[in-house]
Nucleic acid binder design. Structure first.
Length: 955
RNA sequence: GCGGGGGUAGCCAAGCCUGGCCAAAGGCGCAGGACUUAGGAUCCUGUCCUCAGCGGUUCGAGGGUUCAAAUCCCUUCUCCCGCACCA
């Protein structure tokens, strides 16, 4: 096994010394490509390299076809990922330390620098560049590297927000967001970046229903406000100590937990006292909407943590309620203990309110019976509830009893009834999480009302339309996304763009208490790569990046002299940056994982359309799917991480690049499988050693040279058209499989002309350069070619030789047919006799082609034409059969595809190959024409010969 | 629920948009052979059924359009993903 790392480092150094990765303006057409920069969340795994590799390979291909390519990279560090990682390191968290060490982090760093979040970001910026991207041979312009936490990047970001504001796209309104009382806003999502528990929770909108009882209001929270007409009683947990809360002129009674949650969402709440649940039981209260007095009954299932800790009871449609009432009626002793009278219990009678498909009067009862639930505490009640809720929502219609809402579908009634009660002061809105969510810091996450939240108004119709129209002109892969992106853009509404709390990120320019959030600061950044270089090398200081500077550099607004005076940047440099922007932008291709389809890409598109002029809007998007890890674990969260440098050492960076490029369509998930990767790695080794042998080949020129040249021309054509669509997989199939096989066939057939080999080998190695650049250089060098293949240009596809290719196809066909016969018969032939088509059949083919050219081909027309020819007619029924079959075949196949059969000299081809066939098949091969009088034909096989398919006799 | 994507030979995976050299690329696996060896080799051949290569039946299932369908249309079964502050 070669030491891949040494070879790879060698070429990386050469490229770097030649500054191949550094891109500057010149006369060539440009091509700018990026991948959506990764978030700095820790070590990446082998799956991530898939998309990045596509980007480098596409960039390299573009270089090879005449483009001046710019491929910049960066990282995204906004948020609290680095903060929490640093905190865990500082706390000495065992899992974290272990994870860091396992991925190659020097232990001493864990004792010191990595306890600071910004150092964590710096550390990983380095890891990503050095251990991943450079390690894989990317020709990225490292001078332009940027990170969302760089001060200069922040200046750019603030400028972008000023432009969004100028465009009228920043708006303010109240917002309810998950937040930790001490850490501020948190992201609730399955990745649990911010959380220690509850990533799957959803924010649910409850309707708070008010039940007047004396001078106080009992408050229940419900997800189903449309069921108020079915309320028959009210549940309170007698064991809970509820609190009294003054809310404006009202006194509310809710659980202490509910009070805590509500206080984050409503202003001016004041706790005034407590009341025991048991003291509430037995009272009557006025139900909202229906204005009927219903009894307050005791229920142990009322959880003070859920909703308000009190529940309104709608037994007709709530399985829980149904069961509880059933139980109460069977055994009233529990209720009576709290002073509930028999009359009260008897007064509780379910009311039918919703008719739904497949259910009777009381859906709750139906589902309970259907599922066979007989006890109040049955955990399946949860499932029953969901089922009734779902069916009710989609198929339910409100009954006549429901007043003005009678006849409405539940879907519609829900909102209208909720609104009606809010308007009449009988209800309010309350947000809660569907399950317990705990912040990284350990505190419980709540839903907090933010009064003056800033949003980017992505819902702006004009902007959406403009963006959508532009997308039709873009190259978007896969085509499914091209078609669907319009729906996504429409769906993508206003988005909260800033957040409070302890976060890494850019300060919001209009109010510095706010930090611009993670998605909003990563949409327009590709254009910043054209400026970052000048900040990185110190030619521009962040303070000099004023609004006027960006206005000029990016938008061309203002006069460079004036701007120079204003910001203090020298005028020539200003002009240079402006020229860079004009040259490189728009972005030609943005490549990102499928998770970007609904969030990043629409934001990326809309921001470009909002801030930049149309000629700077992006030209292409490519989405890649994932490498998943069922067979062997690759995910860092699973603990079985496969560090990227280790994999590269074992399989070779190029072996991995080839694996990514070829293992499947970019638009499908792939299971990480080391055996498969190994076979790609070995294939590459095999090619390298084969190429080494080829280069030293010194044989005579043969007819195979024309064939090989023709095949290479075909392959170059395929590669060029595949790469029009960025189809790396197709390119890799050609470069690593088809061309390889052709060279082998060439040699097997006796080809070995050094001139031909050298010409074709150049093209072959070039074809491999985009995907496996290091090995391509190695082969290029070992073949003695000049310069670097990374700097070479792919030739245009030349002419193909139809006869040469047809002749070889014929020989392979004959061999395959003969093998079939040998297999079926089981004989071990010593002699193979081939008979090419008799001339009269060839003549029929010729007539068929003529008719086809004239557009007159049909079975009768060909038969007629044949029968008027004496030579053909002489063969009687065989002639008409052949004519029919010929016409059928020709009409079935693409026009002209049978022409080579007619034009080539099959007999000569085969005769020239008898030596080869004899040797290959270990027998004596002979060729006759079916017309030959003296042919050896003991089994009368010659009559089967037709153009394109010689008859075969074996003995 | 809303939106999106799949189901192809033992396995992985192309093809489907733009119907026709598609019994369906390529890889893996398996079988036989060559070479000759300690290598996770390489080369050749085969790998739906039948069979001197003709032919037959296949591309989740069922219909339809067409001279012609894995490819277009409809129905159906089944699997997967996203739905918001995670690039």
């Amino acid at each position: 096994m070669p030491d891949y790392e040494i070879i790879e480092r060698k070429w990386q150094t050469v490229w770097s010394d030649r500054k191949l990765n550094e891109s500057e303006r010149d006369e060539r057409p440009k091509f700018m490509i990026i991948f959506a920069y990764p978030g700095v969340t820790g070590y990446l795994h082998v799956g991530h390299m898939r998309g990045y590799t596509y980007a480098d390979a596409v960039g390299r291909y573009k270089r090879m076809t005449g483009y001046n390519v710019l491929f910049p990279v960066g990282t995204h560090a906004t948020g609290n990922g680095a903060i929490s990682l640093a905190a865990r390191i500082a706390a000495g968290d065992e899992n974290t330390i272990d994870y860091m060490i396992r991925n190659g982090c020097p232990p001493e760093k864990l004792e010191g620098e990595l306890r600071d979040p910004l150092n964590v970001v710096r550390f990983f910026n380095d890891v990503y560049q050095e251990e991943y991207w450079k390690r894989f041979g990317f020709l990225a312009d490292w001078r332009r590297f940027t990170c969302t936490l760089y001060p200069d990047y922040s200046r750019f970001m603030q400028w972008q927000f000023r432009k969004l504001n100028d465009a009228g796209l920043l708006i303010q309104k109240p917002y309810f967001a998950p937040a930790c009382p001490s850490c501020g806003p948190v992201a609730v999502d399955p990745s649990e970046t911010d959380l220690s528990k509850g990533g799957n929770a959803e924010t649910q909108e409850y309707t708070l229903l008010k039940f007047r009882s004396g001078g106080e209001i009992l408050v229940a929270a419900t997800l189903r406000p449309e069921t108020v007409y079915g309320q028959v009683c009210f549940w309170v947990n007698p064991e809970v100590e509820y609190v009294k809360v003054r809310n404006g002129g009202e006194t509310w009674i809710v659980s202490p937990q509910a009070y805590d949650k509500l206080s984050h969402q409503m202003d001016g709440l004041e706790r005034t006292g407590t009341v025991k649940g048991s003291d509430l039981v037995g009272r009557m209260c006025a139900a909202p909407m229906i204005h009927r007095e219903i009894p307050v009954l005791p229920a142990e299932f009322c959880d003070p943590d859920v909703g308000t800790g009190m529940v309104t009871s709608v037994p007709s449609d709530a399985p829980d309620d149904w069961m509880s009432i059933l139980k109460l009626k069977e055994d009233s002793s529990y209720a009576e203990r709290y002073g509930v009278t028999k009359e009260m219990i008897d007064s509780v009678v379910p009311v039918s309110i919703i008719s739904m498909k497949g259910y009777g009067e009381f859906p709750a009862q139906d589902i309970i019976e259907r599922m066979g639930i007989i006890e109040a505490g049955d955990p399946r009640l949860e499932e029953a509830k969901k089922q009734v809720y779902k069916d009710g929502y989609h198929t339910g219609v409100m009954n006549d009893i429901c007043g003005e809402f009678a006849g409405l579908r539940v879907e519609e009634a829900k909102d209208r009834m909720k609104q009606a009660m809010i308007d009449s002061g009988e209800a309010d809105v309350f947000y809660d999480l569907s399950e317990e969510v705990i912040c990284r810091c350990g505190r419980r996450v709540v839903i907090k009302k933010i009064d003056d939240q800033w949003f980017i108004d992505y819902g702006n119709e004009e902007l959406t339309q403009r963006t959508s129209d532009h997308c039709r002109t873009m190259t978007i892969n896969p085509v499914e996304y091209y078609n669907n992106v319009h729906a996504v853009l429409k769906w993508f509404r206003e988005r909260a763009c800033v957040r409070l709390g302890n976060w890494l990120g850019t300060k919001f320019p209009f109010d510095e208490r706010w930090i611009i959030e993670a998605i909003s600061d990563s949409t327009l950044y590709p254009v910043y790569y054209l400026i970052s270089m000048y900040a990185n090398d110190g030619r521009i200081a962040p303070e000099q990046m004023t609004e006027a500077f960006f206005d000029y550099a990016i938008l061309g607004k203002g006069d460079p002299g004036t701007v120079s005076g204003e910001c203090g940047i020298e005028e020539p440099l200003l002009r240079r940056i402006r020229e860079d922007v004009l040259y490189w932008y728009p972005l030609d291709l943005n490549l990102g994982g499928k998770e970007h389809m609904t969030v990043h890409f629409p934001a990326f598109l809309k921001n470009h359309a909002a801030v930049l002029p149309p000629e700077m809007w992006p030209r292409g998007i490519m989405v890649n799917w994932y490498i998943t890890g069922k067979k062997s674990k690759i995910s860092k969260s699973k603990g079985g991480a496969q560090p990227i440098p280790g994999a590269a050492k074992r399989f070779g960076a190029d072996g991995m690049r080839l694996y990514y490029a070829h293992v499947a369509s970019p638009f499908a998930d792939v299971e990480w499988d080391e055996d498969t990767l190994m076979s790609y790695s070995q294939r590459l080794d095999r090619i390298v050693s084969f190429v080494g042998d080829l280069a030293s080949c010194k044989g005579p020129g043969t007819e195979m040279d024309a064939w090989l040249v023709s095949r290479m021309n075909a392959h170059v054509g395929t590669i060029r058209s595949a790469m029009e669509k960025y189809d790396l997989r197709q390119m890799a199939t050609v470069a690593y499989f088809e061309i390889f096989n052709d060279f082998r066939w060439y040699q097997r057939r006796g080809g070995g002309d050094p001139g031909t080999i050298s010409d074709c080998l150049r093209t072959w190695i070039k074809a491999m350069m985009p995907v496996t650049p290091h090995m391509a250089e190695e082969m290029w060098e070992s073949a003695g070619f000049e310069g670097l293949v990374s700097e070479a240009q792919l030739p245009e596809a030349g002419e193909r030789s139809v006869p040469a290719e047809y002749g070889e196809d014929l020989i392979r066909e004959v061999m395959s047919d003969a093998q079939q016969i040998i297999k079926v018969t089981g004989i071990e032939p010593k002699r193979m006799v081939l008979y090419t088509s008799p001339s009269w059949k060839m003549k029929i083919l010729g007539k068929a082609l003529e008719l086809q050219d004239e557009g007159e081909l049909s079975i009768p027309s060909l038969t007629k034409a044949c029968m008027s020819d004496q030579d053909i007619r002489a063969h009687g029924k065989a002639a008409s059969d052949t004519a029919r079959k010929t016409a059928e075949d020709m009409m079935r196949l693409p026009a002209g595809s049978m022409r080579p059969m007619f034009e080539s000299d099959e007999r000569a081809h085969l005769a020239a190959a008898t030596g080869f066939l004899s040797g290959e098949m270990n027998l004596k091969a002979e060729v006759f024409s079916a017309d030959d009088d003296g042919k050896y034909d003991p089994s009368d096989k010659a009559k089967m010969a037709v153009p394109g398919r010689p008859a075969i006799y074996l003995e």
